[in-house]
């Protein structure tokens, strides 16, 4: 067992301070009474109150949520299919192009993805709005989903599936009863990844949205460009709180599952 040296302790402390202090300051100053974000003038929750009055932000939040739920669900279905094709389908014509199209969007600068999709939508005369944002988000997040799911599929024991087929399952039943439960954690984390990518995206949404649909990041960006504002701090705090609760509870759940699995395994060994 190696021991932590003073150097390790210092670098960990400084590193985590660097990662967290900016967000802590942001959260603290969302409770500032004054209009100036950098001068403390007493505790107040009035910016949260103003936020609930701000129709534009609420509308944008609603649009963002709808886009994120729909696009991450599509992306999960398509991405899981794509992962299956990559890992299981073997050789077929155009396989190289297929895997290229899965990996390329991961490294493609967002400005290029956004620009190219916009030019497509204009070319085929599709009105820009919620639909175009959903199409755009589904396309880039399905690639992330397929990477996550295929990494699980690779380590998956294929003979389990074969056993199900031998025992009389149809391929679809085998998928539903055997494969899906095993890859479920990867599918769920793929969905969560797609969901947060969609919630977070500014650049692609800016290119593919029209006047009828504005997402929250677009709204935040245009407000922030004019400088810091306490209302944005309040909004950010709410978003940070949601993410923190989500990530911590997800990690607790997975930890509990792991413990339960271990206990079941021990019980099975004893039996």
């Amino acid at each position: 067992m190696m021991r932590l040296s003073w150097f390790n302790v210092v670098s960990l402390t400084l590193g985590f301070a660097f990662l967290y202090i900016p967000m802590i300051i942001l959260v603290i100053y969302s409770f500032n009474a004054g209009k100036l974000v950098t001068v403390w003038s007493g505790f107040s929750t009035k910016w949260y109150g103003e936020l609930t009055q701000n129709e534009a932000f609420l509308n944008a939040a609603w649009v963002t949520l709808k886009v994120a739920v729909v696009s991450s669900t599509f992306a999960t279905v398509l991405g899981t299919m794509a992962a299956y094709v990559l890992v299981r389908a073997g050789r077929f014509t155009g396989r190289t192009l297929f895997s290229g199209m899965i990996y390329a969007p991961l490294v493609m600068p967002e400005v290029i993805t956004g620009l190219s999709l916009l030019l497509l939508f204009i070319g085929i005369g599709l009105d820009r709005g919620i639909v175009t944002i959903v199409l755009a988000h589904t396309t880039f997040s399905m690639c992330y989903v397929s990477v996550v799911v295929s990494s699980r599929l690779v380590t998956f024991d294929q003979s389990l599936e074969e056993a199900a087929l031998d025992l009389g399952c149809s391929p679809i039943e085998a998928f539903r009863l055997v494969t899906l439960p095993i890859i479920a954690p990867a599918v769920i984390s793929g969905w969560l990844l797609a969901f947060t990518l969609s919630l977070d995206d500014l650049v692609i949404a800016s290119f593919t949205s029209g006047p009828s649909a504005t997402t929250l990041p677009i709204k935040i960006y245009s407000a922030v460009r004019l400088g810091v504002s306490p209302e944005i701090n309040a909004l950010s705090t709410i978003m940070i709180a949601i993410v923190t609760v989500g990530v911590i509870s997800a990690s607790l759940v997975s930890k509990r599952n792991l413990v339960r699995q271990k206990r079941e395994m021990q019980a099975a060994e004893r039996a």
């Binding site: 960990l12 985590f16 990662l19 967290y20 900016p22 967000m23 300051i25 942001l26 100053y29 974000v37 950098t38 001068v39 947060t196 919630l199 977070d200 500014l202 990041p217 935040i220 960006y221 922030v224 400088g227 810091v228 944005i232 701090n233 950010s236 978003m239 940070i240 993410v243 923190t244 989500g246 990530v247 911590i248 990690s251």
Partner: peptide, 29 residues
């Protein structure tokens, strides 16, 4: 520690950049 590294990654990119605007500005923190 791993979770503490990943947590910011799930937080909005825009918000993380925005947090620095208040820190680095002329009268910032």
């Amino acid at each position: 520690l791993m979770m503490l590294i990943i947590l910011p990654f799930w937080t909005s990119f825009l918000i993380r950049v925005y947090a620095w605007m208040g820190i680095l500005s002329q009268e910032g923190f």
